[in-house]
Design a protein around this nucleic acid. Sequence first.
DNA 1: ACCCAGGGTCATA
DNA 2: TATGACCATGGG
Length: 215
Amino acid sequence: MGFYAIYEQLRQHFGPKDWWPADTAFEVMVGAILTQNTAWTNVEKAIRNLRSADSLDPQIICALPHEKLARLIRPSGYYNIKTRRLQAWCNWYLEYGGYEALDKLPTPELRAEVLSVYGIGPETADDIVLYAFNRPVFVIDAYTRRIFSRLGLIAGDESYDDLSALFEQELPTNTALFNEYHALIVNQAKHICQKKPRCEQCPLAPDCLFFTGRH
DNA sequence: ACCCAGGGTCATA
DNA sequence: TATGACCATGGG
């Protein structure tokens, strides 16, 4: 089964997922930073705190004292580091001229600029470029590695750039496709395949094709 | 009590 | 290039 066929299977069983769960592009950026190595349920609490404090805004986040911002995002973990990353992002974002200025850049330049910001690695950058700027880049995460190495299509320990190049080569360059595909991968990993001892609830059983955990 | 979650940076070899 | 330490909460 090829990369596109796997997408079609997932899409048929679970889609459409209508990602990213956020009201605005800026909220996507905040969520992408806060969810680094962190369960999304914890990020939701942090974002709720920011919204309740009327602080889901780049100017306000920049102006907030470290301790105050850290307290708001505390449920998302690593709150001291993420406070620095959030403020670094918002400072850069405003200094650059905001969404409209960045959206003028071609995709490779946009990705490079985003990636240059402190606290933004390849996955967070691609989350932002894909889900906030609607550009066709394929997001690679731990689930992608587990699922596709389990399927025998990759080794799993390739570099991030090697894997994103592979996926982008194997699939048509299409923002909606990349958006939905990554959403389906995360959905699959989170809601179906962490069961022990086998994934009997998986519609793709009996082979539990998309098993992602350990038995 | 232990394991892990929609990673990234920095120091070291 | 490639490991390892570090960051920290909340749910299973």
